[in-house]
């Protein structure tokens, strides 16, 4: 493919990524929110993270079962309060091990 093909995609991606990030931050910082909308925003992080994880994680490796094992290892490490790097590396190691064995 020509470089211009990738350039157009990257510039387009940069725009549709930047605008949703920028707009509410610049506009909403003026507003006082009601209790309902504050609760709504309070619940956004767990809701968005859950939607990002599931069911997308099932397609992360060739085998859904191994992907879930990787997720469970990450969850256990996170529960035991390990830092993000240890969590990520443990999950990669677990998936690698299971893929190697099976």
């Amino acid at each position: 493919m020509a470089n211009s093909y990738y350039l157009i995609i990257i510039i387009g991606m940069a725009l549709v990524t930047y605008i949703p990030r920028m707009f509410p931050l610049v506009i909403l910082s003026d507003l006082e929110l009601t209790a309902f909308w504050r609760r709504f925003l309070y619940y956004i992080p767990p809701a968005a993270l859950s939607a990002l994880i599931f069911p997308g994680i099932l397609g992360a490796t060739d085998s859904s079962i191994i992907a879930v094992i990787g997720g469970i290892v990450a969850a256990i490490m996170a529960y035991l309060k390990f830092n993000l790097l240890t969590i990520v590396l443990s999950a990669i190691a677990a998936v690698f091990l299971f893929q190697y064995l099976i």
């Binding site: 992080p45 767990p46 993270l49 859950s50 990002l52 994880i53 997308g56 994680i57 992360a60 490796t61 060739d62 992907a67 990787g70 997720g71 290892v73 990450a74 969850a75 490490m77 996170a78 529960y79 309060k81 993000l84 969590i87 990520v88 443990s90 999950a91 990669i92 190691a93 998936v95 690698f96 893929q99 190697y100």
Partner: peptide
């Protein structure tokens, strides 16, 4: 094999952020 194992990384990070929440 290592390359395909690494694709779990993004999800592991999301899990690592969700659990403390």
């Amino acid at each position: 094999l290592l390359e395909s194992s690494m694709e779990i990384a993004l999800y592991a990070m999301f899990v690592g952020l969700l659990i403390p929440e």
